[in-house]
């Protein structure tokens, strides 16, 4: 388990990351969301030891992470970086070796990964002759090549077309396995599809964190109702709030009213065509907590 504890980073007088704490649990994909400049990249760089924190700790299985342990993490930085004029396989082998693998295992693992990514035929090609999507695959491969113990991926989907995003999602699901995975993204629909846990950052602070289900559960339940006639009268009912009413349909948030009571109330006064619980999309949770 990868834990961040009271991590803080200031540049001069500006505090970019402020007392940030969260956990990345093994076998779970943790989405890291927040607006531009919220401090996601800075947090991730501190986790990877590329940037020194002003204060706070990064823990691995409960103790301060050592350099040797940190070297086994896989990292995909926000600003993509590989050697443009170096052969694809050569650089993957190089990265594996820098992470401490011996040369034969590095070569074997590189061959496996390239095959898995459908890039075996391009192994000897220079990186900059590959399409952007394929370069991105190599970038992910660079984070995976040394058989990491944890993954920290900064915006792994940015710059990908929808098809490439799909294959990247599948790939991450395959590769992540039992590892703790932290990935940041602007694309909340993607985070929604992929993540088990969520950490929401706003202006350098954690404003929400926990499992995606729990975060959804913490919001009040919403219901959509469709009636035989106009639904506007619901605005006058006590114990609920009408968020939106449009002809026969309305979106309600129950305050001190149980669902059964709502149904009874509705059937007394109108023809009820539909009463449905609305799952609140993460994008809404996000908007609320970062407001």
């Amino acid at each position: 388990m990868l834990t961040v504890e009271s991590l803080t980073r200031a540049f001069g007088d500006t505090v970019v990351v402020d007392d940030v704490s969260f956990q990345v649990r093994p076998g779970r994909m943790t989405g890291f969301v927040g607006a531009n400049g919220a401090g996601k990249t800075t947090t991730m760089r501190m986790m990877m030891g590329v940037l020194a924190p002003t204060s706070g700790r990064v823990l691995w299985d409960g103790h301060d992470v050592t350099a040797a342990e940190r070297r086994r993490f896989g990292y995909m930085p926000e600003e993509r970086g590989l050697y443009p004029r170096m052969a694809v396989a050569d650089q993957l082998v190089y990265f594996a070796r820098l992470h401490g693998m011996d040369a034969p295992s590095a070569r074997a693992r590189t061959a496996d990964l390239l095959e898995h990514f459908g890039l075996s035929e391009r192994a000897g090609d220079l990186l900059d002759t590959l399409s952007l999507g394929n370069q991105q695959r190599v970038q992910i491969a660079a984070a995976l090549v040394h058989e990491p113990t944890a993954l920290v991926l900064d915006e792994p989907f940015s710059g990908l077309d929808p098809l490439a995003v799909d294959s990247m999602v599948d790939l991450l699901r395959d590769e992540a396995g039992t590892l703790p995975v932290l990935f940041s993204s602007h694309q909340l629909d993607l985070v929604e599809r992929l993540c088990d846990d969520l950490v929401v950052l706003s202006r350098g602070r954690v404003v929400a964190s926990g499992s995606a289900d729990a975060l959804r559960g913490s919001a009040r339940e919403r219901h959509r109702v469709r009636l035989g006639g106009d639904a506007a009268w619901l605005r006058d009912v006590r114990g609920l709030t009408v968020l939106d009413a449009d002809g026969p349909t309305a979106l309600l948030e129950l305050e001190d009213l149980a669902v059964a009571e709502l149904v009874r109330l509705l059937t007394e006064r109108a023809d009820v065509l539909e009463v449905a619980t609305v799952r609140q999309p993460l994008s809404e949770i996000f908007r609320e907590v970062t407001r």
Binding site: R70, P84, L98
Partner: peptide, 11 residues
């Protein structure tokens, strides 16, 4: 080429 970020995380 920004590859230095990966290098710095490794060694």
């Amino acid at each position: 080429s920004r590859v230095v970020e990966i290098l710095a995380a490794a060694v």
